[in-house]
Amino acid sequence: MIRGAKRAPAAIRHGLNFRLTYKQSEALSGILMAAPWILGFLFFVAGPMIASLYLAMTRWDLFTPPRFLGLDNFHALLTDDNTFWLSFRVTTLYAVFSVPIQIAVGLALAQMLNQKIRLLGMFRSVYYLPSVLSGVSIAIMFRWIFGTQYGLLNGALKLLGIDPISWLGDPSIVLFSFILMSVWGSGANMLIYLGALQSVPTELYEAAEVDGAGSFRKFFKITVPMITPVIFFTLVNGIILSLQEFQTPFILTNGGPANASLFIVLYLYRNAFQWFKMGYASAIAWIIFFYVLVLSLLVLRSSKAWVYYEGSLKGRGE
């Protein structure tokens, strides 16, 4: 058998014997294990995405047949739509501040809640609580928190002798309020980091303690580097989510006052479902897509410099 196989061409040999080299069997396993996702992608995701890309190049009012326009929508958006650029700026500013803050707060919470303290379970639950609420409930809650006259936040400031601030009514403050609100969602990041902290080998800390390292040094020299893969995840994911923020501004301010909280997806939504401009809306979506893609690729590229993979395949002949 083996002798015969040696004489036969390689392809037939494998086809007949199903005896694969290690590399081939690894490749086959990889494809098979990724198959559910590949199938799901081809079946549920790819079609609608291609359809929306086509629609981005048309004028479509949802009901009458789309009319092909080529790149006109993109051209109009990029050169002739001030509102689009305004929403682009609002959304970018929001992302630039909210993503790092969420990561920092999440990390701090995880670190504090990853030690032996009393009522640990209760504290963890309390800090995770905001993530449990539906988007609309959060928006409603913040209407109370940010209210000028009877809001909780201004009530607290009053105790400190600070004059009431118009959190949602002042165009120059409203975006700041949204960033403040995003801190609220740090519980999800906290949970991810807590999970990641469990796989940091305790030996590393013990070794560091022998060397006399304090908690801060341990945190920055061991904890943070060891969970960089997960921090990387929350960074990419944070960018994706924050640039697609929709629910809260939709309910809370509807983009106001004076478009100061007009997030880009809210503008997209108006075009798509209020103004019968689905083609134009699709073009906005694809601009967001490329914007997020470019940012993610930049992060991905930079990750080689700062993300440490214990289980990396790199340097193993790749």
Binding site: R143, G147, T148, Y150, S166, L168, G169, P257
Partner: peptide
Amino acid sequence: APPLDVASEMG
């Protein structure tokens, strides 16, 4: 009349 933000307080 109250400023805009007071009005938006509770809807």
